[in-house]
């Protein structure tokens, strides 16, 4: 595949340079750390800081959700590789107004370790970091091992609700609880049709045979639960909805938000085709859709495929989800 790259080893640096130039009205690069993106108005007096971090290659996640009523700072890692503990620490410092910082991140080995080290380092500087670890990816572990599940696009709802709660002036514990509730309300599934390639590696990092699809695939190509013959979009959409809704166990009359994200190299029209089947399956179960998001929200380089996230809503989650935001991703 032909690419717009200067140096395959400088993809993250070059992305960040272009990113801050494009969105200088909303974000800035940290003065202390060239791998930390900070909301322009951070730190906000009297507000709990809300941060995340993760490997690059998932744009617009993570950095694109920095902004008003959302994330205050984001630690940026190499492609598909956790940011350093120092970057998580510097993200926390950039938005700490004295009320503490909540780090809302996904359940991956590297991120878990770097965040743990950042918490230790921050404590030495008198900064309290609370955490919520996203684990919305249904196929990554069985229902009785939810703590082992990975975090995927449900993180966006976690950031949205946690960020909105913090913007209301809530305490660190209140923001943490809200973000925890948000991610507990989310279930996601991914379906992969073709693998992705790290530019510096130059070849795909796994393979999906022609005419097959991998159901339950992770954001870095982690294995799915099964490889199946490729079906029609209507059948795939229904299967995705069933995986998510069966795990969720929602009652008839429940209200949800739906997020369908492309994995990087799937055209938008195909996502809308999927949504047709997904929304019909949800409606058939007597569940009301409050809001639907369709787009490239959380990608995996040039992977072909899509993820579905369904979030169960109560009045508070609905209110927080509906708060207006201003962020570079411009998709919320």
């Amino acid at each position: 595949m032909q690419r717009f790259v200067n140096d395959p080893d400088e993809v993250v640096e070059d992305t960040l340079k272009g990113f801050v130039k494009a969105h200088a009205d909303i974000v800035r690069l940290s003065e202390e750390n060239s791998r930390v993106i900070v909301a322009k108005d951070a730190p906000v007096d009297g507000k709990v800081g809300v941060i995340t971090g993760g490997g690059s290659g998932h744009e617009p996640a993570f950095l694109g959700y920095t902004g008003q009523n959302l994330l205050d700072a984001v630690a940026v890692g190499e492609l598909f590789s956790s940011p350093t503990a120092k970057s998580f620490l510097d993200a926390a410092k950039a938005c700490n107004s004295g009320k503490g910082v909540v780090c809302l991140y996904g359940n991956y080995a590297g991120d878990n370790m770097n965040v743990k080290m950042a918490i230790k380092l921050a404590a030495k500087e008198g900064i309290e970091i609370a955490t919520v670890v996203a684990n919305d990816d249904v196929c990554s572990a069985a229902p009785d091992e939810r703590e082992k599940r990975r975090g995927v696009a449900g993180e966006i709802f976690m950031w949205k609700c946690g960020g909105a709660k913090a913007a209301e002036g809530a305490s660190l514990e209140e923001v943490r609880e809200t973000a925890q509730k948000a991610i507990d309300s989310c279930r996601s599934v991914g379906v992969g049709l073709a693998p992705c390639t790290l530019p510096a590696v130059g070849h795909p990092n796994f393979s999906i045979e022609p005419d097959t699809m991998e159901v339950g695939i992770g954001h870095h190509g982690e294995p799915g639960v099964r490889v199946e013959p490729l079906k029609t979009a209507a059948e795939v959409g229904k299967e995705m909805a069933n995986i998510v809704l069966d795990d969720h166990g929602l009652e008839e009359g429940a209200e949800v938000a739906v997020l369908i994200s492309g994995l990087g190299a799937t055209p938008l029209d195909e996502l809308y085709i999927l949504n047709d089947a997904i929304s019909e399956e949800i409606a058939a179960r007597g569940i009301t859709i409050h809001k639907t998001y369709v787009g490239n929200y959380f990608t995996s380089l040039d992977m072909v495929g899509a993820t579905l996230t369904v979030m169960a809503l109560d009045d508070e989650m609905k209110r927080l989800l509906d708060v207006d935001v201003r962020c570079p991703a411009r998709l919320l």
Partner: peptide, 15 residues
């Protein structure tokens, strides 16, 4: 290692 190298090896060897 802890401040400059991320991923998993940075924190593991760092600590």
């Amino acid at each position: 290692l802890l401040t400059e190298i991320g991923g998993s090896m940075g924190p593991l060897y760092g600590v």
